[in-house]
Simulated assay, not measured.
Amino acid sequence: MTLTLVKSPDEAAETEPLTLAALRHEIDLLDSEMVALFQKRLELADRVGRAKDAPTGGYVKLRPDREQAVLAHVLQGARPDTRDAVEALWREVVGHGLARQGQLSVRVWAPVEPARAFDAARLRFGRAAELKTERDPQAALAFAAEGKGVAVLAINAGDPWWMGLRREWAALSVFEGFGRDIPTSLAVGRIDPGALPRGDRVLVTAGGDAGDGSGAGRRGLDTHHGWTLSLTSAPVVPGGPEGCVGAIA
């Protein structure tokens, strides 16, 4: 005959806290390891900042192409249910690393749903960046043109500021889009053209949005007096005759 030992309610109550304590102890150990790894990464970021060549032409220190490649590598090891959390954590880590080389300043203009645009910019650039709102898109563009920071501006918000990317703000490039399928705002800055991310090219052109001569169609984002802001998958060159003013991943 086999005897089965049944724990009393008092014994079960004593076992549960021990299990919880063990789990909390394991979390404490992981927290200590994470802090040590984070500090080591900051030290390596400092060394990279001192070793790399300083950008010429007044470009900001951001390398969207490098960030895109590293983030893709990081997300390969993330489970589908943790991808958003992993990306948010990674952007915070990178943001603090960049801040060691000088705080990044971001100006946000979004007259419609400003909190949404501000939150998207905060997620993209991290809490180490300095974020401020602007009431005037031209002021945000002028700030970005100085090369000391970047601007995040809403589109389809009643102001065709993007037309200036082919005119007085030609030194600025689009390097990020915010929105799931169709961008609702764009980030611009003095970005080295060779550091733009791989992805859709952003076009500012006169006329419609039927195509760009490469066989690739355009997806319109905004229009104003015969001018169109659109995306294309064609590998057009920024600053070229096609009207490419940047790229988004």
Results as ranks from 00 to 15, higher is better:
160 P>E: 02
22 A>Q: 11
104 L>K: 09
152 V>C: 11
229 L>Y: 08
173 S>C: 08
68 Q>T: 09
145 A>W: 01
242 E>H: 12
4 T>Y: 08
29 L>R: 15
80 P>N: 10
117 A>P: 04
244 C>W: 00
117 A>S: 15
76 Q>M: 09
110 A>G: 11
90 W>A: 15
226 G>F: 10
23 L>S: 06
16 E>Y: 10
118 F>E: 13
27 I>H: 12
117 A>G: 07
203 L>H: 05
152 V>Y: 03
93 V>T: 13
49 G>K: 01
135 R>D: 14
183 P>L: 00
233 S>P: 01
123 L>T: 13
185 S>I: 02
7 K>H: 15
117 A>I: 02
231 L>I: 03
114 P>I: 12
188 V>M: 08
245 V>E: 06
162 W>F: 11
27 I>K: 12
13 A>P: 06
49 G>P: 00
194 G>A: 13
127 R>C: 05
112 V>E: 12
169 W>L: 01
77 G>K: 07
54 A>E: 14
204 V>Q: 04
161 W>M: 08
86 V>T: 15
185 S>K: 05
65 D>S: 12
84 D>N: 11
207 G>N: 11
152 V>E: 07
130 E>M: 12
206 A>N: 10
140 A>Y: 06
98 L>S: 01
149 G>Y: 04
212 D>H: 09
125 F>C: 07
76 Q>R: 15
88 A>M: 10
89 L>S: 14
133 T>R: 15
126 G>T: 10
190 R>C: 11
83 R>A: 14
107 R>I: 09
153 L>F: 03
130 E>H: 14
187 A>Y: 03
98 L>I: 01
249 A>R: 14
232 T>C: 07
30 L>H: 05
98 L>M: 12
157 A>R: 03
164 G>R: 14
105 S>L: 07
83 R>T: 14
109 W>L: 08
201 R>E: 04
121 A>P: 08
79 R>H: 10
66 R>I: 14
177 G>A: 06
150 V>W: 03
182 I>Y: 06
247 A>K: 08
17 P>F: 11
80 P>V: 07
46 D>H: 09
236 V>W: 07
195 A>F: 04
58 G>M: 03
164 G>V: 01
155 I>S: 02
192 D>W: 05
101 Q>N: 08
2 T>F: 10
191 I>C: 07
82 T>H: 14
72 A>F: 00
198 R>D: 13
116 R>L: 15
63 R>M: 06
225 H>V: 11
159 D>V: 13
63 R>C: 04
238 P>V: 13
142 A>W: 00
181 D>W: 05
56 T>H: 09
6 V>W: 07
224 H>Q: 03
246 G>A: 12
62 L>E: 07
4 T>M: 04
60 V>M: 00
185 S>R: 02
152 V>H: 05
96 H>Q: 14
98 L>F: 10
53 D>P: 02
121 A>N: 10
165 L>K: 05
65 D>E: 09
135 R>N: 13
76 Q>G: 15
196 L>I: 02
81 D>W: 08
120 A>W: 03
225 H>Q: 15
130 E>R: 15
178 F>R: 01
231 L>Y: 04
174 V>G: 04
